[in-house]
């Protein structure tokens, strides 16, 4: 792997960001809207007599953390789709760039964007609702990492499906995370779900993150075994996701679909 090639792909998405409306919207507009909506909802429930700090922390914490997964996934998928839309895919894959370099660049790019979005949302929630995301102290790091990596995995899977089956599957990029949200126990405990959905939830690293987040808020403790399980599942899914991408890319090369995708 060569850094200059990874750097090139990162710069491809950084150049012109300030001139590109949809990128600015992705970075700041949607997170702000989400924060305002959930913040008002938490305020309403608080005034209705619920425990003030916990509810605000439950909802805003879950919303900010879920935003990490969404951003991480969409940065990977949409960066790829932008290459398809701009008919740039042949330029990129017809260069010395390798698939691992492309994936690494996409991961690093999403990391950069998430740091920006996370800092922005953290600041905004503190300014608007006096909610400090750093309440989660050092537990924030494993939560953050788990969601980032799982977002990458979903992003790679979406990218591989679009690469292999074409742009008619673009909807995958937006619908995959929505599909896992109800079973990830983001805004409610896993116990709320029916039995068979709980089993699905337990197979997702996201569930352990959000259950862990509520555990930290209520008991200031975190189950290390659950955290380890989340990391284990994440590692497994990331490896499977990368393998899936490589298999799909090989199939695309075999069938000559790369130029037909544009």
């Amino acid at each position: 792997m060569k850094f200059h090639r990874i750097n090139a792909i990162i710069w491809r998405h950084i150049y012109g960001t300030h001139r590109t409306l949809h990128r600015l919207v992705d970075l700041f507009y949607w997170p702000t809207l989400d924060l305002v909506l959930w913040g008002f909802m938490a305020t309403y429930f608080t005034r209705a007599g619920q425990s003030a700090f916990n509810l605000m922390a439950f909802l805003l914490g879950a919303m900010i953390l879920w935003g990490i997964l969404i951003r991480s996934q969409q940065d990977v998928s949409i960066s790829f789709m932008e290459e398809v839309w701009s008919r740039n895919l042949l330029n990129i894959f017809g260069s010395p760039l390798s698939v691992p370099e492309f994936l690494t660049a996409t991961f690093l790019l999403s990391l950069i964007r998430i740091i920006i979005v996370f800092a922005f949302m953290g600041l905004l929630s503190w300014l608007l609702y006096a909610f400090n995301i750093l309440t989660f102290s050092f537990y924030l790091i494993p939560f953050w990492l788990n969601l980032l990596i799982f977002g990458w995995t979903i992003g790679i899977v979406a990218m591989a499906i679009i690469l292999r089956f074409g742009q008619r599957f673009n909807f995958i990029a937006w619908s995959l995370p929505v599909l896992i949200q109800p079973v990830s126990a983001v805004f409610y405990p896993l116990s709320v779900l029916p039995g068979f959905l709980q089993k699905i939830g337990l197979a997702l690293p996201t569930t352990y993150v959000f259950e862990g987040m509520r555990q930290v808020i209520t008991t200031h403790q975190l189950s290390i075994s659950h955290l380890a399980l989340a990391f284990g599942l994440n590692l497994l899914y990331l490896i499977l996701g990368c393998l899936f991408f490589v298999i799909m890319y090989r199939s695309v090369r075999k069938k000559g679909l790369l130029s037909k995708l544009e």
Partner: peptide, 15 residues
């Protein structure tokens, strides 16, 4: 083939 439309010519070539 083409290049990302929103980028300037020199930005595309720098990439």
């Amino acid at each position: 083939i083409s290049f990302p439309g929103s980028l300037y010519v020199d930005e595309n070539l720098k990439i």
